[in-house]
Amino acid sequence: MPIILGPNRYGKAETRLVRVTRDGATHHLKDLNVSTSLSGAMEPVHLTGDNSAVLPTDTQKNTVYAFARKHGVDQIEDFALLLARHFVGSQPTIHHARVEIEEYAWNRLPVTRHSFVRDAGEVRTCVVHHDRDGRTTVVSGLTDLVVLNTTGSEFHGFVVDEYTTLAPATDRVLATAVTARWRHTGETPSHASSYARVRQSLLEAFAGTYSLSLQQTLYAMGERALQTCEEICEVRLTLPNRHHFLVDLTPFGLDNDGEVYHAADRPYGLIEGAVLRQDAPDAAFAWE
């Protein structure tokens, strides 16, 4: 039976980049984690160890730093596109580039121009694909957007078998740490504006949906984002259910009418799904 080389790629993972823009006495900060992956005519390096087609991963790292100096860093999607197009356009053996960026937020301290505090909350993300045939996809997103409703959520009517111990709930705490990714249909005039509107849509749908299941909430969040933002065609959501259980206080002679909870970190329910426009163009590789 013949053996052949399958899909492959290589690159430099997690290049940490901090870019300070000095606008006089006022400084601006960008804190990124950049990962690059390249693929193309790589059969010789895998089969015989011939490195003549390989752009070293160290070079990819250096390109990230050089481009940050030459071009600056504004929106992470634009910086990722710049890098991906450079790698494919400058090297004949590179046919496809994937650039993934995480952005960590810093907030300027009051009454200062150069002092910052790290935002310990959500992380902004993007993944860009670009290939020699001119196909380009941009997937924006966020992780660790922690949200909670203290009421307005139920869960009942589920399958019951011999292993079921969960009691039906008609009023429960619903909490999750949202990971969301959304695919753009083409060029987006302002990634900053698009990101803000998608994020706000997700929050509004979470807060405004009377939830009979976390799956229902997931769909409502994706639907709201698509209705609000015409520039995106698909939203993928990962919603871990951060369970909150009422503590039994009867041994202490106390009642507990929805006031004292134990926040369990594991095991947890994990709800995942995609919401997309019916006519959304297929781009399965965009999510890889």
Rank of each mutant, 00 (worst) to 15 (best):
S201F: 10
S201N: 10
S201L: 08
L202M: 04
L202R: 04
L202F: 02
L203S: 06
E204R: 14
E204C: 07
A205I: 07
A205Y: 00
F206M: 07
A207C: 01
G208W: 04
T209W: 01
T209Q: 03
T209A: 06
S211G: 06
S211K: 01
L212M: 10
L212N: 12
S213Q: 07
S213I: 04
L214M: 15
L214Q: 15
L214R: 00
L214D: 01
L214W: 00
Q215H: 10
Q215I: 00
Q216A: 15
Q216M: 14
L218T: 00
L218W: 07
L218P: 01
Y219L: 01
Y219D: 05
A220W: 01
A220E: 14
A220F: 04
M221H: 03
M221T: 03
M221V: 04
E223Q: 13
E223D: 12
E223N: 09
R224P: 00
A225F: 04
L226A: 05
L226F: 08
L226E: 04
L226K: 07
L226N: 04
L226C: 09
Q227P: 00
Q227K: 15
T228F: 03
T228Y: 00
T228V: 14
C229S: 08
C229T: 14
E230Q: 13
E230M: 03
I232G: 11
I232R: 04
I232P: 11
I232S: 02
I232H: 08
I232K: 04
C233Y: 01
C233R: 09
E234K: 11
E234A: 13
E234C: 12
E234S: 11
E234M: 11
R236T: 13
T238C: 01
T238S: 15
T238N: 09
T238M: 11
T238E: 15
T238I: 12
L239G: 10
L239F: 07
L239K: 08
L239V: 07
P240D: 10
P240Y: 06
N241K: 05
N241R: 10
H243Y: 09
H243F: 09
H244P: 02
H244Y: 13
H244W: 09
F245E: 07
F245Q: 10
F245H: 10
F245M: 09
V247D: 01
D248V: 10
L249F: 06
L249P: 12
T250Y: 05
T250G: 06
T250S: 15
P251K: 09
F252G: 04
F252I: 05
F252M: 12
F252Q: 09
G253D: 06
L254R: 14
L254Y: 07
L254I: 03
D255A: 13
N256M: 11
D257Y: 00
D257M: 02
G258N: 14
G258P: 03
G258Y: 03
E259T: 15
E259H: 11
E259Q: 15
E259C: 10
V260P: 00
H262V: 06
H262A: 13
H262L: 12
H262K: 03
H262P: 00
A263V: 13
A263R: 14
